[in-house]
Design a protein around this nucleic acid. Structure first.
Lengths: 109, 109
DNA sequence: TTTATTCATCGTAATATTGCAATGAACAAA
DNA sequence: TTTGTTCATTGCAATATTACGATGAATAAA
């Protein structure tokens, strides 16, 4: 019914999918790549850079922020967003462990 | 409008988000983990293992198959699904490159 | 104080995703 | 052939996501 039955899965499985969902939209991929590139940012730059409306960018930023992958520091009228290094590293560890699973396989395939 | 404006983004950005979307649901994470674990599988096993209805599992399998991450070989009345090692490795390379971006940052944050 | 700038939030419309009952297709066994 | 097994597909209902105009809150500048 459009509702992910999260209670059926392990905490780890839900964590992995939550992080993956964060990268599951090209706008958020682009936002993160831009933050990595310039190493600091304000929302207005992203609106020009990405090409989506300001509320849309703001909404994507909020999702990334709620997951802890970015942080925003208010500076006057603008907000300085950047990658949260510590949480990014944690996420990378969890996702990488999933991606790095053993590929050995029996004769079935 | 619920429509990702893929044409605004680079091919690479869309590729990353497509793969990420595949892991963006705990059921698909669980399916892949199970395939890794037993190294071969049929759909019926997954229905018992995961706990979702058979059509639901079949639908998730189709998405993973369309992305090339798994493959299914028909064996009599059952279908043997397993990880597509080559494509998994390719995907891992693309996603890892994104995750491994340089975390150095200026004094802004 | 007034005005401008910047970003967040609200409200809403459109599309996407998830889940499953019902059904179908393919094959094997009786 | 008939029956049973296995998985795919269809059709639908419910929820989630995406996008943006309008508006609000906060601050800075005039």
């Amino acid at each position: 019914m459009g509702l992910a039955k999260t209670e059926m899965f392990t905490k780890r499985q839900n964590t992995i999918s939550s992080f993956a969902k964060a990268f599951g939209h090209p706008a958020r991929v682009a936002i993160l790549q831009h933050l990595f590139k310039i190493k600091a940012c304000v929302c207005g730059d992203l609106v020009n850079e990405i090409g989506l409306a300001q509320p849309t960018i703001s909404q994507h930023l909020r999702e990334l922020k709620q997951l802890g992958l970015i942080q925003g520091n208010v500076e006057g009228t603008s907000v300085c967003y950047c990658i949260n290094k510590e949480n990014w590293a944690k996420m990378k560890g969890i996702v990488s462990e999933f991606l790095d699973q053993d590929l050995t396989c029996n004769d079935c395939c």
